[in-house]
Protein backbone atom coordinates (compact mmCIF):
# COMPACT_ATOMS: atom_id res chain seq x y z
CA UNK A 1 0.00 0.00 0.00
CA UNK A 2 1.41 3.34 -1.02
CA UNK A 3 1.75 6.11 1.50
CA UNK A 4 4.25 8.37 3.13
CA UNK A 5 4.65 9.43 6.76
CA UNK A 6 5.46 12.84 8.12
CA UNK A 7 8.96 11.75 9.19
CA UNK A 8 9.83 10.71 5.66
CA UNK A 9 8.55 13.98 4.22
CA UNK A 10 10.59 15.88 6.79
CA UNK A 11 13.70 13.86 5.92
CA UNK A 12 13.36 14.44 2.19
CA UNK A 13 12.68 18.13 2.77
CA UNK A 14 15.85 18.37 4.81
CA UNK A 15 17.89 16.67 2.10
CA UNK A 16 16.45 19.07 -0.46
CA UNK A 17 17.17 21.96 1.91
CA UNK A 18 13.52 22.98 1.98
CA UNK A 19 12.29 24.76 5.05
CA UNK A 20 8.69 23.70 5.58
CA UNK A 21 6.22 24.67 8.30
CA UNK A 22 4.27 21.94 10.14
CA UNK A 23 1.22 22.96 8.19
CA UNK A 24 3.06 22.56 4.88
CA UNK A 25 4.48 19.21 5.99
CA UNK A 26 1.02 17.91 6.80
CA UNK A 27 -0.33 19.21 3.51
CA UNK A 28 2.47 17.43 1.61
CA UNK A 29 1.81 14.13 3.40
CA UNK A 30 -1.68 14.22 1.90
CA UNK A 31 -0.58 15.32 -1.57
CA UNK A 32 2.29 12.90 -1.85
CA UNK A 33 0.12 10.03 -0.57
CA UNK A 34 -2.41 10.80 -3.28
CA UNK A 35 0.35 10.80 -5.89
CA UNK A 36 1.77 7.51 -4.67
CA UNK A 37 -1.70 5.97 -4.69
CA UNK A 38 -2.08 7.04 -8.28
CA UNK A 39 1.22 5.38 -9.18
CA UNK A 40 0.04 2.33 -7.27
CA UNK A 41 -3.10 2.23 -9.38
CA UNK A 42 -1.00 2.31 -12.55
CA UNK A 43 1.11 -0.51 -11.17
CA UNK A 44 -1.94 -2.76 -11.04
CA UNK A 45 -1.91 -2.88 -14.86
CA UNK A 46 -0.42 -5.92 -16.54
CA UNK A 47 2.54 -4.57 -18.53
CA UNK A 48 4.37 -7.86 -18.96
CA UNK A 49 4.15 -7.64 -22.75
CA UNK A 50 4.98 -3.94 -22.98
CA UNK A 51 8.59 -2.84 -23.47
CA UNK A 52 9.86 -0.04 -21.23
CA UNK A 53 9.33 3.32 -22.88
CA UNK A 54 11.41 6.41 -22.20
CA UNK A 55 10.26 8.39 -25.21
CA UNK A 56 6.96 8.65 -27.01
CA UNK A 57 8.65 9.19 -30.39
CA UNK A 58 11.25 6.75 -31.73
CA UNK A 59 14.26 8.99 -32.23
CA UNK A 60 17.97 8.41 -31.78
CA UNK A 61 21.33 10.19 -32.14
CA UNK A 62 20.32 13.79 -31.57
CA UNK A 63 23.79 15.29 -31.57
CA UNK A 64 25.36 18.72 -31.75
CA UNK A 65 28.75 19.76 -33.11
CA UNK A 66 31.54 20.44 -30.63
CA UNK A 67 31.39 24.23 -31.02
CA UNK A 68 31.68 26.73 -28.19
CA UNK A 69 28.56 28.76 -27.44
CA UNK A 70 27.80 31.65 -25.12
CA UNK A 71 28.02 31.34 -21.33
CA UNK A 72 26.18 33.29 -18.69
CA UNK A 73 27.66 36.35 -17.00
CA UNK A 74 29.10 35.23 -13.70
CA UNK A 75 27.73 38.15 -11.71
CA UNK A 76 24.28 37.40 -13.02
CA UNK A 77 24.52 33.77 -11.88
CA UNK A 78 26.02 34.58 -8.50
CA UNK A 79 23.31 37.20 -7.87
CA UNK A 80 20.76 34.37 -8.13
CA UNK A 81 22.54 32.28 -5.47
CA UNK A 82 21.79 32.77 -1.75
CA UNK A 83 25.44 33.73 -1.16
CA UNK A 84 28.71 33.90 -3.08
CA UNK A 85 32.37 34.23 -2.14
CA UNK A 86 35.49 34.51 -4.33
CA UNK A 87 33.42 33.93 -7.46
CA UNK A 88 31.97 30.74 -6.04
CA UNK A 89 28.61 29.79 -4.64
CA UNK A 90 28.41 29.36 -0.87
CA UNK A 91 26.71 26.14 0.23
CA UNK A 92 26.32 24.49 3.65
CA UNK A 93 29.42 22.67 4.89
CA UNK A 94 30.24 19.52 2.98
CA UNK A 95 31.77 16.86 5.13
CA UNK A 96 32.24 14.08 2.67
CA UNK A 97 33.83 13.55 -0.69
CA UNK A 98 31.92 13.77 -3.92
CA UNK A 99 30.02 10.63 -4.91
Amino acid sequence: MAGIGIDEVRHVARLARLELSDEELHGLVGELTALLEHVDAIRQLDTSGVPATAHAIPLSNVLRDDVVGPCLERDEVLAAAPAAEEGRIVVPAILREEP
Binding site: G69, L72, R74, G87, R88
Partner: peptide, 12 residues
Amino acid sequence: AEPNTNICPVCL
Protein backbone atom coordinates in the same frame (compact mmCIF):
# COMPACT_ATOMS: atom_id res chain seq x y z
CA ALA B 1 39.42 29.15 -15.90
CA GLU B 2 38.16 31.69 -13.36
CA PRO B 3 35.49 30.01 -11.17
CA ASN B 4 31.95 29.91 -12.56
CA THR B 5 32.79 31.55 -15.88
CA ASN B 6 32.08 28.48 -18.05
CA ILE B 7 28.47 27.94 -17.09
CA CYS B 8 25.14 28.27 -18.87
CA PRO B 9 21.47 27.41 -18.27
CA VAL B 10 22.00 23.80 -19.43
CA CYS B 11 24.87 22.86 -17.14
CA LEU B 12 23.23 24.78 -14.30
